[in-house]
Simulated scan of single mutants.
Amino acid sequence: MDDQLSRVFSALADPIRRDMVARLAVADAGVNELAEPYDVSVQAVSKHLKVLEEAGLVSRTKQAQRRPVHLEAEVFDLMTKWIERYRRQAEERYRRLDDVLAEMDTEQSPTDTRHTERGAS
C-alpha cells in the first residue's frame, strides 16, 4: 500500500500530471486531447501518462482506432484514507491542546482574582 501511495504522490508532484488528472476527472480523453493545452510534445505527454499509469491513477482502453485515457478513481480512496488518518490524529492533538489551555485558563483565573483582592486591601 505505502509503495503505491508513494508512486501516486510522486506522480502528482508534477503540475502537468495534476492538471491531466483534473481534466480526466471530467471526462476520458485521448493523448492528443490531453496534449493540446501544453507546450510539450505528444511524446512528452505520453511519458507523463506512463507515470500516471504506473501509479495506478489512469488506465487506457482500446476503442477502434482511439485509446482513451480513463481516471482510476479508486486510487483516490487510498489517498483519502491515508490523509484522513493523519487529519484525525491532528484533530485529536488540537483537542488535547484545547483541553490543556482551558485547564490553564481555569487555574489562572482564581489566581488573578486573589492578586486583585490583595492589591485592593
Rank of each mutant, 00 (worst) to 15 (best):
E92C: 11
Q65K: 13
M104Y: 02
D105I: 10
E74R: 08
A27H: 02
D14H: 15
V42I: 12
A73W: 03
Q63D: 13
V69T: 04
T61Q: 04
A55H: 11
V21W: 00
D19M: 02
A44K: 15
A102M: 12
S46K: 10
E91A: 15
Y86W: 08
M1A: 11
E72D: 03
A35Y: 07
F9Y: 12
E103D: 15
R114P: 00
A55W: 09
R95Q: 12
P68K: 00
S10K: 04
V100L: 11
A64L: 13
E103R: 11
K81Y: 08
Q63Y: 07
G56S: 06
S46V: 10
L24Y: 01
E33V: 10
P15Y: 05
S109V: 04
A55E: 13
V40H: 06
V26D: 02
K50P: 05
N32M: 06
T106E: 13
A13K: 10
A44D: 11
L71Y: 00
R88N: 14
L78S: 13
A120L: 15
K81C: 04
E36A: 12
T116W: 04
A120Y: 10
V26S: 01
R85N: 04
N32Q: 11
M1H: 09
F9I: 04
E91R: 12
A27N: 02
P110S: 01
T113N: 05
D3E: 15
